[in-house]
Design a protein around this nucleic acid. Structure first.
Lengths: 335, 335
DNA sequence: CAAAAATACGGCAATATTGCCACTTTATTA
DNA sequence: TAATAAAGTGGCAATATTGCCGTATTTTTG
């Protein structure tokens, strides 16, 4: 078996393991795509057949396949090597780990953290609100962390507060929970004209970078939220996603639901196989543009307020989030 | 013919065209690799055979193949679409366009431009020299452009000067001129300990980004030249390249020559198939680390001197370059 | 100049991937 | 409940890719 073959086989086993239930070749194909592997559905059955024979997987008849004991063992023995952590890996990880349930309105969501000193807060509040107001934010919810609190790997230092903004990867997780595997292609800087998205100015693929594209755009001072919020002409950070064409309607329905719970983040949804903002989309998929979660923090950098932002910082319970309009109140109770 | 097939075929034709002389399948394989296509040498002969039959290419016996009239026509009719310009495309382009001849010591080299105001110069000179001195620079040569001069697409504004530093892509071009196709994998931030490269802190692949990785690291303030030049502990921007394993010796010989003309930029050269700084290298290739051309400009950003840097800005004649020690003199004649 | 080494080729076969289709099992619908 | 639609599967064949090998030609070496 060639090296390439083995890699794909492992990817399949891994997905079977994560699923924990029988999976059909078609569903698996979409999941593989979300992880960046391009294969046809038939080829997967081809692999399945071979792995069935070797006892790594088992055909549960109509439902699909499950991984066997032997398969699990094989997985365990496979060396895990990820080298310099590319962002794509981290995205995958977090997507599977988060647990937000759209109907119960509970569970964890993925957030970004921006650290600001307490003195800066009065300056910050109106700016952040402006972005939320203009709708260039991932939903309407946010969180605040007080000194000493721990989120993901970060501990909020003395004299500072952590502003938590919902990360758009959360959307991946929600879609996944509804059986829609989402491929995150790249983060980009989107130019707006009269509040309408026109084209991508820059892009950085998630599987080609260890840095978060949005962080990069923000730190490089390439965003223009001031303009975007003022007259609709500016540049904002967004993410580009691909979902299976059949799921387009379900996605649209979910977007509705998401907005109701304050987690709306979709800016555009394309059509099957059709390019979206000049970005080609493979056949059988639709492209979608989601708003960058760090956006509210970006405007700070832009106007000279120094904050440290960290994308994909960790997860928090949905209950911990509140509507952005409450921000001023919440803050006053701290300082 | 599938879509994927067609793409590769076009890539082959394009390379044949550029070469302008008969090319064998083996050489072509390396060239394709440099452009990011992974195929076996046999497969290329497979394509050749097919294209021979269709009259797009012609077998010149022992020498290899050339493209025919019909092939050129086919190329012309192929839609050229490159979407949001990824850096990899730009690198290819410039590599083929530059013309520096190592023996004649003439022709064009690729440079980056950093714009600084004339008032800043006195501050700048010692810092830049420090980087050159420490050897964390691409060679020892640089250029200065006066107000009004035009380099690539940039015109130096009034009251400013352009500092031109040699871009490490120039090395690709030189190697190519000696028949060694170089694949540029990614730009990375390299951690130094006691002047020894230890590991990559961050990486951004050239084929996954429209921004130059080095520019990103610099603008994000992630570099640490102050440390690197002072005590050998710091972080500098570098590029990762792959060259065919057989050419390792030629490369080493060329490095020697390059240093003699002030264009030395190789920091490390690995061994066939062996990982270099934990970065895996495909079989039959050796990895190499080259110093980022923008490095001298990076220390400026770091110490708070505001300059605008633009990687891969354009090309200049080698004659226009001078040794960095002359910088002070050259500048005094301007201001 | 002859022998040896290197380079390039194409035939053949093995492997990998994918399309097409018939068959079976569920769901859904009339 | 019967008919129809949808999803999933494996067989078969076509295509794509690659490895292996023998032949031819050129280059290098002794």
């Amino acid at each position: 078996m060639s090296e390439k073959t083995e890699k794909k086989e492992l990817a399949i086993l891994r997905l079977l393991q994560k699923a924990g239930e029988p999976v059909s070749s078609l569903r698996l194909k979409e999941n593989l795509h979300a992880m960046g592997h391009e294969v046809s559905e038939r080829t997967i059955r081809h692999y399945f057949l071979d792995m069935d024979r070797r006892g790594l997987t088992k055909n549960q008849g109509k439902k699909g396949r499950v991984i066997t004991e032997l398969g699990l063992k094989e997985l365990g023995s496979a060396r895990i090597y990820d080298k310099v952590g590319l962002l794509a890996a981290k995205i995958d990880q977090l997507t599977y780990r988060m647990s937000f349930d759209l109907y119960k309105k509970s569970g964890t969501v993925i957030i970004n953290i921006s650290l600001a000193s307490i003195e800066q807060l009065p300056q910050i509040v109106p700016l952040v609100c402006r972005v939320y107001e203009a709708g260039y934010s991932m939903g309407t919810m946010m969180a605040i962390f007080e000194p000493g609190e721990r989120v993901g790997g970060i501990i909020i230092p003395e004299g500072m507060v952590g502003l938590g903004t919902v990360c758009s990867i959360t959307l991946n997780g929600v879609l996944l929970a509804h059986g829609i595997p989402t491929h995150s292609s790249f983060g980009g800087l989107l130019e707006l004209r009269d509040r309408k998205p026109t084209r991508f100015v820059e892009i950085i693929k998630y599987d080609g970078s260890s840095l978060d594209p949005l962080e990069v755009f923000i730190r490089s001072g390439m965003t223009d939220y001031a303009g975007a919020t003022e007259n609709g002409n500016g540049r904002i950070g967004v993410g580009f996603r691909e979902v299976p064409a059949d799921s387009r309607e379900s996605v649209i329905a979910l977007i509705q639901k998401l907005e109701e719970v304050g987690l709306g983040g979709f800016l555009m949804v394309g059509w099957p196989g059709q390019p979206l903002l000049e970005i080609p989309v493979s056949e059988g998929r639709v492209g979608a543009v989601v708003i960058g979660g760090l956006n509210p923090a970006a405007i700070l950098e832009e106007t000279g307020v120094k904050v440290k932002s960290r994308a994909l910082a960790g997860m928090v319970e949905y209950e911990k989030l509140f509507h952005y309009q409450e921000m001023a109140d919440r803050i006053s109770s701290i300082s």
